[in-house]
Amino acid sequence: MVPLSCYLVLSGTLFACGVVGFLIKRNIITIFMSIELMLNGANLSFVAFAAQWKALSGQIFVFFVMVVAAAEAAVGLAIIIAIFRTRETLNVDRVNLLKL
């Protein structure tokens, strides 16, 4: 028997790791992976609450989150390929065309 709060703490930890990676990483692919980590943390809390309140809708929402994540990964990686083709770099600090 594991309390719901343990699952929520784990979910929050994963989300925080995603946020920290999003902020400190400089490689655009690793930043994208941090976003996936945040989505996974949110999914865990969805499933934990679904088990807590005995409502299967939580698992359906996890399904939809996964569909959106898959679509986002496909389009995002295509954008990364397009950026690499024009700028020849994966470092986000070198993609600074809109910076003053």
């Binding site: 499933v47 088990a51 994540a69 898959a70 990686l77």
Partner: peptide
């Protein structure tokens, strides 16, 4: 799986660990 969500666990392995990570 510990939370009793077998379907979500299977989808997690197939879609996330399988498809999306292979794309990465």
């Amino acid at each position: 799986l510990l939370l009793g969500a077998e379907f979500v666990a299977a989808i997690q392995v197939i879609v996330y660990a399988g498809a999306i990570m292979v794309l990465f």
